[in-house]
């Protein structure tokens, strides 16, 4: 399979000379469902050649935003500009340049894969003479060769997901909107699809949403976390980490002392904000410093003063999971 992907990339670069630049610009987008604000005054920009990872808990407004960009839902307040054209006036024209994989990957289960891809290609205005070539390419890229004559309903979930990706890319769109593209795939397939998306992202504008945090780190150039319809973080994984690392977190193990006494002593240190037992029997603690302070030296000195033995001192790096939790748990 990996070889097939590689050969695709080569061909892809030849085919994509006529690719236009299509940046997505979302301006003050707001969407109400009755009294509930699904999306609340969101503004962001995605450049051509960039992959934006859309993160957020369920119901945060990711899917709604994507549905508005793809013109399935109305853009009531605010505006979306794709390639310099507003979606308000040019919706029908812009749809041709967008490839979309909806959430849950709906498909016509009684259609054979090939017929389905042909249907999608002709709907998207691919020239009739080029349709067979595009289908062949998509079948190869998505690894559907053995399944291409089966009905979609007979395929396993992973293969259906590939069909979903194939139909999104069949017309070689400049903009790709993927709502949870790797659900249902096995780890090997996930790696392949991520690789494919990364490669496509070089010349396309890609927005993908996901729940899997490692996926965002592996695939995306930029991460945007939204919660309750608002953007709570926007930047690369590095910048987000730096932002979250305001407070140092240490894992400490101290031996040869009474656990309660150690606990008390650490808590009384001026730089320490919070102490917690992670394992009372092993005298292991989690120490959170005050913002902007480090307690490593103080803890060492404390041990020396009391004759305790410091057997473990580790700085835990803020994980993306922690950042996510911190930003989205209210």
């Amino acid at each position: 399979m990996p070889f097939l992907f590689l050969s695709y990339f080569k061909q892809y670069e030849i085919n994509s000379n006529n690719h236009s630049i299509m940046d997505i610009k979302v301006e003050k987008l707001t969407k109400n469902y009755g009294h509930h604000k699904a999306v609340d005054d969101i503004s962001f920009e995605v450049k051509t050649g960039e992959i934006l990872g859309f993160l957020g808990p369920n119901g945060a407004g990711k899917t709604t935003t994507m549905k508005i960009i793809t013109n399935y839902l109305n853009c009531e307040q605010g505006d979306i500009i794709i390639g310099g054209k507003s979606i308000r006036d040019n919706a029908e024209e812009l749809k041709k340049h967008i490839g979309y994989l909806p959430e849950n990957n709906p498909l016509y289960l009684d259609m054979p894969v090939i017929d389905y891809l042909e249907f999608c290609a002709s709907l998207q205005g691919v020239e009739k003479s080029k349709i067979p070539e595009r289908i062949r390419e998509m079948v190869r890229v998505c690894g559907l060769n053995a399944e291409k004559h089966k009905r979609i309903g007979e395929l396993s979930k992973g293969f259906r997901q590939r069909v979903g990706l194939a139909q999104a890319m069949i017309h070689n769109p400049s903009v790709l909107i993927l709502d949870e593209p790797t659900t249902g795939l096995d780890p090997n397939q996930i790696i392949e699809i991520r690789k494919l998306i990364r490669e496509l992202g070089r010349e396309k504008t890609v927005i993908l949403s996901t729940h899997i945090l490692s996926e965002v780190e592996a695939t995306c150039d930029r991460i945007m976390i939204i919660n309750n319809g608002k953007i709570v973080a926007n930047g690369t994984a590095e910048t987000l980490r730096k932002q979250a690392q305001g407070q140092e977190i240490l894992t400490v193990k101290i031996e040869d002392g009474d656990s309660n006494a150690i606990f008390k002593a650490i808590q009384e240190l001026p730089t320490v904000g919070l102490v917690d037992f992670t394992d009372r029997n092993l005298n292991r603690f989690e120490v959170q410093s005050r913002p902007g302070c480090t307690s490593r030296r103080e803890i060492f000195n404390l041990c020396v003063k009391n004759g305790w033995i410091l057997t473990e001192l580790a700085v835990s790096e803020a994980k993306l999971e922690d950042i996510f939790r911190e930003l989205t748990v209210n």
């Binding site: 549905k67 399935y72 749809k95 909806p102």
Partner: peptide, 14 residues
């Protein structure tokens, strides 16, 4: 019901 309408209407079809 199956959601395929979303697929159709986000393609170049009004």
């Amino acid at each position: 019901k199956t959601g395929t309408i979303e697929l159709l209407l986000t393609k170049a079809v009004s």
